[in-house]
Amino acid sequence: MQRVNMIMAESPGLITICLLGYLLSAECTVFLDHENANKILNRPKRYNSGKLEEFVQGNLERECMEEKCSFEEAREVFENTERTTEFWKQYVDGDQCESNPCLNGGSCKDDINSYECWCPFGFEGKNCELDVTCNIKNGRCEQFCKNSADNKVVCSCTEGYRLAENQKSCEPAVPFPCGRVSVSQTSKLTRAETVFPDVDYVNSTEAETILDNITQSTQSFNDFTRVVGGEDAKPGQFPWQVVLNGKVDAFCGGSIVNEKWIVTAAHCVETGVKITVVAGEHNIEETEHTEQKRNVIRIIPHHNYNAAINKYNHDIALLELDEPLVLNSYVTPICIADKEYTNIFLKFGSGYVSGWGRVFHKGRSALVLQYLRVPLVDRATCLRSTKFTIYNNMFCAGFHEGGRDSCQGDSGGPHVTEVEGTSFLTGIISWGEECAMKGKYGIYTKVSRYVNWIKEKTKLT
């Protein structure tokens, strides 16, 4: 034993070699072989497995989906700052455009905790909710729209109204504003409101030439003092309507412009014939205590009207009353817009006519005020429907199939267009061939041609 100890002390290297040989010859039971080890760690190889990531292109799944990435790591994937920024906006807080917040056709661009709407022409605001041009839906104005110097929408209202708090709607500024039905039992019968379409306001006024200088022999019209197929109006439903009495009662109609003036057809009036105007009328054979009678003290036909040349060209006249009318729910003026808007309103496509005229061709006159909704007829169809001249200051309205029309005794009465609950004068009943005849239409004086003249002559002093 002493000898062994001496050998170990003198030859430590020998001992180490012996131990190493023993270990190498022993069977290893701690580690699995290569094949079995792979069965336990069965993990798919990654895209760049075996390579240094710093030297390969980034992978979106590896960089940002398996674990949260930084902007720089995302930049490695896209290799483009702009594309990385677009991805980053949604990656950080989701897609803010998912709810489609942009209105009126706006395009949404996502941002971090926010979004941006790219608005089409005519709109602005956070969600493109603000109209900035009158060309689109009248700028959301209830009545009139004008573009300011910086191309912003400025709404306005006709006389007797003021802008509401929203700067879009119009509200009454006087007790009985024009064009409004205020009798409670008839307010439910107000005709369907007309909503502004998209309009090209630059070209809204037709490029028409008034044929002022045409000389033409007097034409022989049949029954051209021209509501057939209409309905009984309720008291106060058309408070701007008046009836004219002269040699015979209810020979023509008219509309209240203001307390002192009536507008009617020029062919209705004769110099030297006494005319009485009755406002607030409903049943011409009954006294309903809503009527107001006034005498006409002055007749002003349009300066281009000449019955000797043509009885229905420039067929418009103004009547001055001896005493002002007292405005109330049964006696209310009709609204008159400017030339541009009167023309736009007419193009809405349908209007209402009213009167006490004959209820059928050569038949009896109506006792109760009649009204009828009539569609506008395109000019080409209008011209083809008659052998008589249709001037540019006239328009056609009615039904091709016949059966409904204005008729004798309705002449001078109103053709009105309702705009968001307020009625505007767009025409004056003038003439036609018979009444409600198939293929024939009622012919009306186009008020847009005469609004400046009306307003100039009827100013209240």
Rank of each mutant, 00 (worst) to 15 (best):
E10Q: 09
I15Y: 11
T16D: 04
T16A: 13
Y22S: 14
T29C: 13
H34E: 08
N42Y: 11
L52A: 08
E53S: 00
E53W: 00
L60T: 03
L60D: 02
E61R: 04
E67T: 02
K68Q: 09
E76L: 01
E76A: 01
E79Y: 05
T84H: 05
T85L: 12
W88T: 03
G94L: 13
C97N: 03
P101V: 06
S107A: 12
N113A: 13
S114W: 07
Y115T: 05
C117L: 01
C119K: 03
F121L: 13
E124Y: 11
G125P: 03
G125R: 03
C128I: 03
E129S: 05
L130H: 13
D131R: 12
T133Y: 08
C134D: 03
N138H: 07
E142K: 09
V153H: 09
V154Y: 13
S156N: 07
E159H: 07
Y161W: 11
A164N: 09
Q167M: 15
C178A: 01
C178P: 02
C178N: 00
V181R: 13
S187W: 11
K188N: 15
T190R: 09
A192M: 12
E193P: 15
T194M: 13
A207G: 13
E208T: 15
I210M: 09
N213S: 10
T215A: 08
F221T: 10
N222H: 06
D223T: 13
F224D: 11
F224R: 10
A233K: 05
Q237L: 09
V243S: 12
G246E: 05
K247A: 15
E259A: 10
E259K: 07
K260A: 04
K260P: 01
V263Q: 01
T276G: 06
V277L: 04
V278M: 07
V278C: 05
V278I: 06
H282N: 12
T290W: 11
H302M: 02
Y312T: 03
I316S: 00
L319C: 07
P324Q: 05
P324C: 04
L325A: 00
P333Y: 00
I334F: 00
T342M: 03
F345G: 01
L346Q: 08
K347S: 13
Y352M: 05
F360Y: 15
Q370N: 08
R373I: 05
L376N: 04
D378Q: 07
L383H: 15
L383K: 12
T386G: 08
F395Y: 03
A397Q: 01
G403R: 06
G409S: 11
D410L: 09
G412D: 03
G412V: 08
G413S: 15
T426N: 01
S430L: 14
G432D: 10
K440I: 04
I443R: 04
T445L: 10
R449I: 07
W453P: 00
T458L: 03
L460N: 09
